[in-house]
Amino acid sequence: MAIESRIERSLAGGRPWLFLSAHLDDAVLSCGALIEAQAQEREIIVATVFTEASPAPHTRAARSFLRQCMLEDGVQLFEARKAEDMAVLEAMGVRPVHLGAVDALFRRRVLPRLARGAGNKLLPELTHRYSTYRFDIALGRIARGDKTLIRQLQDDVAELMAATKPELLFCPVGVGSHVDHLITRKAGEGHSENLVLYSDFPYDLVSQPDAAELARLGYQPWIWEEGLSSKHTRIRQYSTQADGLFPSGDIPIKAETYFVPHPWLNS
């Protein structure tokens, strides 16, 4: 007789699930079909980690992102994004939580005391922890200055786990190597008895998870294919983001991929 995976075992019950989302759309992009299917069966909480921007001046990379979103101010953009996220998740029957960390594009360095007064006069790239997207944020190298942030987020997730008592905790596996996705994984991976990793969409259209690392950890893929045809409707409701993510207008239909411990590690 086949041994059930961690997700299959949980599907038979009705205990809460907690999803960690790096940004204000990632959980729906990567897990929206499973979330919507299960929201009628159990409490689903989506906790988004990076939900704020620092005020201007912004780096060139951040300004480019803002133009893509048809806005000029980072703080204004993230207010709009939080409103989108709450509307989408509440319509799905999901409880949204915003943890309030600053997005990597807008995350500032802690300047030496003598430089603080001149901070706004310096080139923004010199005052931000990740000065570019391509050569910093997307290379998967978490800055040393984010160590304190990671510890704080680990405490935040532990508090959420204690408060909501979820049976499963879903975290991004980190396809695409975006530092915020990798930090989000680190924030939750200490809860190994509850942990499920999910493949990051749409990054996984062009990249694949690190199969060797997952095998070393004893994780194997688990696929969800129900409800995919209507998932694009929810993605489109993140209107500040959808056109930039899918400039052709077409949102590919792709099965959601999760990674769970081999069944013999579940027992």
Rank of each mutant, 00 (worst) to 15 (best):
A158H: 08
L105R: 00
L18Q: 06
L29Q: 11
H181Y: 07
G188T: 02
R9I: 04
D136F: 00
R134K: 08
P247Y: 13
K254N: 12
E72C: 01
R63L: 10
H58I: 01
A47S: 07
H23D: 10
F65N: 09
R116L: 11
P112E: 14
A212Y: 01
E90Y: 00
A22W: 02
Q154Y: 02
S267W: 09
L197A: 05
L77G: 05
F201V: 10
M86V: 14
K186P: 01
G32D: 08
M92I: 02
M1G: 14
A80N: 12
E84Q: 09
A158C: 03
L105F: 12
E189H: 06
P247H: 12
Y130R: 02
K121V: 13
F135Q: 04
L24D: 08
A215S: 12
A212E: 15
S248G: 14
V97P: 09
S230I: 12
D155P: 01
Q220S: 06
S5N: 11
H191M: 11
Y238V: 10
L126K: 11
W264Q: 10
P172F: 07
V28G: 06
L228R: 13
L29M: 12
I150V: 15
T240Q: 14
D250G: 05
H58G: 00
Q40T: 14
L18K: 06
E225I: 03
H128C: 03
Q38L: 10
L77Y: 06
R67T: 08
P221F: 05
C31Q: 09
C171R: 02
M70W: 07
G14W: 01
Y258M: 10
V179G: 01
L217Q: 15
G218M: 09
L160A: 06
L205R: 14
S177A: 11
G176N: 07
L77D: 08
P57A: 08
D243C: 07
W264H: 11
V94P: 06
A33H: 05
I223S: 07
I35G: 03
F246E: 13
G249Q: 07
P57Y: 08
A37L: 03
R109V: 15
C69F: 01
A87C: 03
S54M: 02
A61M: 05
G14I: 04
A101Q: 15
S239N: 10
P57L: 09
H23N: 12
S10L: 03
T48V: 02
Q76N: 10
R116T: 09
E79T: 13
P166S: 09
I183F: 02
F78S: 08
T257L: 04
F201G: 04
D156M: 01
E167A: 13
P55I: 02
I3W: 00
D200P: 07
F50A: 07
P112C: 10
A118L: 15
V28S: 04
P112R: 08
E8K: 04
Q154F: 00
L18C: 05
F135C: 01
Y198H: 12
L99H: 09
I7C: 06
R63S: 08
S54Y: 00
Q40E: 13
A2R: 13
L169S: 05
K121T: 12
E256K: 11
S30R: 07
V196W: 03
I251A: 06
Y238C: 07
G140Y: 01
A187L: 03
L153V: 05
L77N: 08
Y258S: 09
